[in-house]
Design a protein around this nucleic acid. Sequence first.
DNA 1: GTTGAGCGTT
Length: 261
Amino acid sequence: MTECYIRVAEDENEEPMEIPSEEDGTVLLSTVAAQFPGACGLRYRSPVSQCMRGVRLVEGVLHAPESDWSNLVYVVNYPKDNKRKMDEMDAASAVKIKRGVQKTSDLIVLGLPWKTSEQDLKDYFSTFGEVIMVQVKRDAKTGNSKGFGFVRFTDYETQVKAMSQRHMIDGRWCDCKLPNSKAGPDEPMRSRKVFVGRCTEDMTADELRQFFMQYGEVTDVFIPKPFRAFAFVTFADDQVVFFFLYGYNLFCVGHSVCPHI
DNA sequence: GTTGAGCGTT
């Protein structure tokens, strides 16, 4: 089997997108997830049984059901409770303020291979559940990975699952733990203040306020002088503010806004 | 251009 394109859609009735296979005819889950963030697998309707069938997934590699992928449309699987279509989320509807549920906290991921990227991390952890943010810590000068990073999940159950096992990531066993510095596990990040990174010099406090007020009442905007490429926005609500800002190509968790990957 | 227990630039 040689490389080809397979047709993948969010739903059976949606317009499919063509996704490239590898040279050996397999399709990487990460390739699917690049177009369908959060995807954890594929399924298809069997022409014979008319039932939905799962596509074999082994260590991040999807294998053609028969001798080839034929001309079927494959449907994306998402982790339970993650059926939402990510790119349909507008900023306002993406606001989640969870009350009365166990809040998640950042997890440190130890033992990462030097080569592992944030995209790799996101692809991997998305198979457990919806991922809010990932970070790979790097040397500021060389850009080399320090071999550890952070991950934050939407759901606490996902976090517990991730902490309860070891992880084979790019060929190394890694561990997910609660970080020992910063915000205790019982009270993770209740800050009303949001760090806004990657600011440009022309952004005004007023513009930031105008933008962030769609998420809640803004009580303060702080821009350091002289220009330092970041700002702080403070909300009235003391709940954890956490949302995605797809339009701005950013995503934001708790008290930090990161470039969206 | 290396390494392998740890703890997060703003």
